[in-house]
Design a protein around this nucleic acid. Structure first.
Lengths: 184, 184
DNA sequence: CGAGGCGTTGATACGCGTCAACCCAGGTGG
DNA sequence: CCACCTGGGTTGACGCGTATCAACGCCTCG
């Protein structure tokens, strides 16, 4: 198990790929930059999730730690391990990417932010308390928005008593039904 | 090998999944509808490509033929076939989905349309002639735009002598470099 | 105490969506 | 064989939602 401090590069675009990575604790962002500095975050990964799939032996994205992270390396392609379990994990990543396509392509800013919180709530155990280790600009780059717009949507959700901010990194869901209606 | 006429449903959201599907000829669209009628096309598939991956035994998208299509069914999960080849195919789908995320999240309408043509050009053999079996609204729903905007971007590309329309369904690329510059 | 990074809020601009009119090609029926 | 109809595509006028630009507050760290 390897620990990383926040903001560390776990792998970079262009590096050779190989192992898979299991998040033991903390959060990771997967992203890519365009020539002109725009950034798209394609995924966040939390404890228990696996990332690092590549088709051709080379990483096409950056993986960076968001907070303090523990990563275990899996080597499913070495001779002494099974390929059995890999396909379901890859399919899980595919499903997530496809769901994200729906959000990016056909949702308003409000719907994007609402569905982001609804998704995190499910992935964090449906406690109604969502932890946001990433900063606003990370959320924006994940949802295809600006951080100002993310901030404004938060304000609207707060004013509507749908959520509450315990701190800038902790969201309490006050009205899950309303949130899910917005997420569609 | 099963032939389908245009507009046929190959599988529907909610149906049990199982086999994979190999396109022998023609084109297929994979899409989903939102409660309020908006549609997101997550992928197009052309001859030689495989689709139909699901994580949990159920289809979460619709697969429909765009024109006349021939489909071969693959049953990699039956006992007499190999699972070997499936992972690379699944990873290919994952890569495509991730690339598409970049396009949907951080590109202008012009860049989306340009990168769509550049992508089709590559997938159709880089001949400089791109065949568009799908209608404008399909392209729009794939790129997260309206069909009017797609039409307007076409007009701009034509006026800039970047492409030419041989017919509404045939694009000739006149200036590949310019197209790729727009695609990033 | 000062500086810098992150977040919020406000004013304004603009890209794309919406709505509407029109064109064109293909198919059908008289 | 032509008139008509229908659906897909194009183009234009306008409005809205989100980006952009800017100011400011707060917290952390030196």
């Amino acid at each position: 198990m390897t620990p990383y401090n926040e903001g560390a590069v776990i792998y970079a675009q262009g590096e050779p790929s190989g192992p898979l990575y299991l998040v033991e604790y903390g959060a990771v962002r997967i992203h890519r930059l365009t020539y002109d500095g725009r950034r798209q975050i394609s995924a966040f990964h939390f404890a228990g999730e696996v990332f690092g799939f590549e088709a051709d032996g080379e990483h096409h994205f950056y993986a960076e730690s968001i907070d303090r992270v523990g990563i275990r390396t899996l080597r499913p392609f070495s001779e002494d391990s099974n390929l059995e379990g890999v396909l379901p994990l890859a399919l899980q990543s595919l499903i997530r990417a496809q769901e994200h396509l729906l959000v990016l392509g056909r949702r308003t800013a409000m719907e994007k932010v609402a569905s982001f919180f609804a998704d995190l709530n499910v992935r964090q155990g449906e406690t109604g308390n969502v932890y946001l280790p990433m900063q606003r600009s990370d959320i924006a780059d994940y949802l295809g928005l600006t951080f100002e717009t993310v901030s404004r949507m938060l304000r609207k959700l707060i004013d509507a008593r749908t959520i509450r901010l315990a701190s800038t990194k902790e969201v309490q869901i006050l009205n899950l039904e309303a949130l899910e209606d917005l997420s569609q």
